[in-house]
Design a protein around this nucleic acid. Structure first.
Lengths: 144, 144
DNA sequence: CAGAATCCTTATCGATACTG
DNA sequence: CAGTATCGATAAGGATTCTG
């Protein structure tokens, strides 16, 4: 069950058909997910909602620099994806509450794994940037 | 060590300071990573390189619809992040080989977790899209 | 309070042509 | 072969104004 000894990640074992057709990667659920939560705000919104439920303006105040437009769009997109739910209390003035759906909660697990990796290797990435030896030239006849 | 019984994902346990300052999420390694590999092509390139090393035009042919410009930019970005390495063989005509770095290999693990989630719930997301009941109204006086 | 609508600036991307 | 350079189209994002 624990496959820690088999470190062949599924993504490597997938063996994509080459050439990968347009439709293949345009409709790919993985790419789709990454495009959605890979934007500027989604991940942050998810991270906040991971802790508790928020009201609209509360989120707005909690994320420095986000515009109303983008907050609304981000929330709508996440809602459309079924990751976030939206509850309207018909009071005056209206109150709207946002939170993660059960589906959204399950996403937290793999997302946390990625987050942990990013934090773990946060130092490696800038290091690699500076380390840019640019076009390292190998022995000419060395290849296969 | 193994926190499989504690299903509180690290992202939820993080408890962000609110308001989250601009610098906080702009320099956040997690958001940074997501922005980088969350674009249209990076993930696909990584997935291909996860299986084996590729030459430039080989990648170009393998990804239907990618332009030279974007392939180059994507590879450069991944290289700058230390995820991909580039080896130039000074032959004529020149041959350039791309592959994952050790760091890139380690990324495959959390990335695969996310990919597995995406594939698992690929059905749920379109389902939730259609299920859009829009602004579900709850009992008015129900809240805190 | 929670947004929708509008405008406008900027970043992104693809196609094409050219080069060592 | 493996790119770079340039250009135009498009999309993303922010600021502002207005509304139920």
């Amino acid at each position: 069950m624990s496959d820690t000894h088999t470190d062949v990640p599924s993504i490597a074992a997938a063996a994509l058909p080459t050439p990968v057709p347009r439709a293949e990667h345009e409709l790919c659920p993985v790419s789709g997910l990454m495009s959605r939560i890979g934007d500027r705000w989604s991940l942050l919104v998810i991270a906040l909602l991971a802790a508790r439920r928020y009201r609209y303006n509360e989120l707005h105040r909690s994320i420095e620099g986000i515009s109303q437009r983008m907050l609304t769009r981000t929330l709508r997109a996440l809602e459309d994806d079924g990751l976030v739910d939206r509850v309207v209390y018909p009071t005056v003035p209206p109150a709207v509450e946002y939170g993660l759906t059960p589906l959204g909660e399950t996403l937290l697990v793999p997302l946390s794994a990625l987050a942990d990796w990013a934090v773990d290797h946060a130092g490696d990435i800038p290091a690699a940037r500076s380390d840019r030896t640019d076009a390292r030239t190998a022995g000419a006849a060395g290849k296969e």
